[in-house]
Design a protein around this nucleic acid. Structure first.
Lengths: 345, 345
DNA sequence: CCCTCCTGGGTCGCTTTTTGTCCCTCGTTT
DNA sequence: AAACGAGGGACAAAAAGCGACCCAGGAGGG
């Protein structure tokens, strides 16, 4: 079967190019609908003319429909999209790559999503969708879900279908607030996720940039303490993986600390902890929440990451956490495979 | 899996077009090599320019190579060709169609080859190749193979690989000579096939157009009798299926007889017998050889036919012969499916 | 209620690609 | 030696692709 797809690639390379382009556009419409030509062109980094040509094609075959508010995908278009997703998996032999990465990193499960987040922001939506699906499958009664912030995790929450029957589930932020954009903060995502699945939630309302002493006082607030206790009992953890330095800068950490991270060769950040290549924790933000020692005992951990530059960070994280569930994009996956060849463990 | 190929057809119809075209050309080179642009263009009924564009592509990717005698296919090209053959089967869902036809006609096995013989003569080569493969698989010691004439069967013989170890096999013509072109006569094919597989053969050397009385005398020649006896013991039969009227005209049968055939609504011809739609024998050429009553008892029969217009004839033949092995082209297959819907038995 | 922004569709001209049609030279075959 | 068919070069016409506009209309925010 694999040879068939290889043959396709060989005999009609331009065909495969235009397939990818149309898939890309169709997916773009799917996630951004209703949307116009020009905005879509900006979003997908294609020229308006190309969008026009391709959408005219897709319209002709009833995969798209137009209204005055923009283009939307049809039922048939969605079906096609699913088939194409399947096709991509086969074409790029992701099943094989997934197995390789799984054994390389020691994960419970690896799912790869086509594309590279850095080149195509929509990949983030796909990551979210797949991760949400995975999370939903693993949900069970009386589970406590700890969730971090970040735009990627936000997509996971966004893609989570509205379901009922999880009133006994509790969602909590993995750590006190760390980020900047309110919509990506773990507190925000906590409440959103809880609402989606009809679960309860508790928040960690801790102001940013407190002095060490004030923080200590706040930690002992009864309400905070109550939530913290739940966090420590979490049996599911959903988190994004970041580049250490990128995250440090985004959080406006001082130059002193950034220099320190650099000296310590920190590469990865997750739930407020910074790790070096070998998974050794080298720094932690001042906040409260989930504890490093606790994390390894959590039965279900779900990591989401996209963009080729995240490969090192992902690698480091899997050194910390064994048997995690990993949702990554093609960019990360390809990079990770290089590690495999260059320095096989 | 089927949906993936349907999706391909939907999302890149032009791509599939060019795939078919390139496949067509590659296959053309494979069977006709070494060959030049212009002759190939004539052969495949494409313009020279198209051939040029596509062969330049195929050359670039090393599927073809050129010499002063013309273009030939490379090793890699052959591999690609096999993969594409597999792909075609999947794309057109031949497996499914084969099963349908099998149950519709009550055959032992049905194999479909892409294309329509009437539009593309090279299909005949594919038919031959597949049929030869099938025949080779079923060969066994001490078998007696009866074989008819015709250009299609000639391709079967031509595609038969040279093998050894069948010295105990006997090849005989199913009937005395019927055709015109010496190279397609059953006697010729008999000796050719026997040579290919290293088997023995016996011929039925009967001159054409004998008077009824002379024929009777010839029949009783000891040499003829000896061969005839073997023919009656045949346990394998390889034959082509023809349109009744086409074959009658090609054999220069008198207008009286042709009129008779028309009145009797003869549609099919095979091994010198003419049948109507329901498989009823309506006429037989004056010759000697295999007997109709005997045919149903032959354990392995292999019928080969191509070209959409042969569908009726194929259908009729399967009424005569149950559990035959059938190798047909896509043209016949599609027509047969129509029968299925229009008048389901 | 109006104004602004974004929508799809129309159009036009330039550029690139495709395609049809030659011719030429060379090697092979007869 | 002559004739044939081989690939490759060349070029103009046709077609397709593409960029860059404008336009009328509808949705939504102020």
């Amino acid at each position: 079967m694999k040879t068939i797809f290889a043959a396709l690639q060989k005999i009609i390379p331009e065909g495969m190019k235009s397939l990818q382009r149309r898939y890309h556009i169709l997916r773009g419409v799917y996630y951004l609908q209703p949307i116009g030509r020009r905005t879509l062109a900006n979003e997908l980094r294609l020229t308006e003319r190309v969008i026009r040509t391709e959408t005219e094609f897709l319209k002709q075959y009833q995969f798209l429909q137009v209204s005055s508010t923009g283009m939307t995908i049809t039922e048939e278009g969605i079906n096609l999209l699913y088939s194409l997703q399947e096709f991509m998996h086969q074409l790029k032999d992701f099943l094989h790559v997934e197995r390789q990465i799984k054994s390389l990193l020691g994960c419970s499960k690896v799912v790869i999503v086509p594309g590279n987040l850095e080149e195509d922001p929509i990949v983030k939506k796909d990551l979210g969708k797949v991760a949400a699906q995975l999370l939903k499958e693993k949900l069970h009664s009386y589970s406590i879900i700890a969730i971090t912030g970040g735009s990627t995790v936000a997509e996971v929450v966004d893609a989570m279908p509205s379901v009922h029957g999880y009133e006994d589930v509790l969602v909590v932020p993995a750590r006190g607030s760390l980020g900047h954009h309110v919509e990506y903060q773990s507190n925000t995502l906590t409440s959103q996720l809880a609402n989606k699945i009809g679960a309860c939630y508790q928040l960690l309302n801790i102001p940013d940039n407190l002095s060490k002493r004030t923080l200590e006082t706040v930690k002992h607030e009864p309400l905070i303490q109550h939530t913290l206790q739940k966090v420590l009992q979490a049996d599911m953890l959903v988190f994004g993986i970041g580049n250490a330095l990128t995250m440090a800068k985004r959080r406006n950490l001082s130059d002193t600390i950034i220099d320190y991270l650099r000296r310590k060769q920190a590469v990865a950040e997750a739930f407020g902890y910074y790790f070096d290549e070998n998974g050794k924790m080298v720094y932690t933000s001042q906040s409260v929440g989930i504890k490093l020692e606790q994390i390894k005992g959590i039965p279900f951990t779900l990591a989401v990451a996209g963009g080729a530059s995240k490969a090192k960070a992902v690698y480091a994280l899997t050194q910390v956490l064994e048997n995690t569930h990993l949702v990554i994009d093609e960019g990360v996956a390809r990079e990770l495979l290089h590690y495999n060849k260059e320095n096989p463990l």
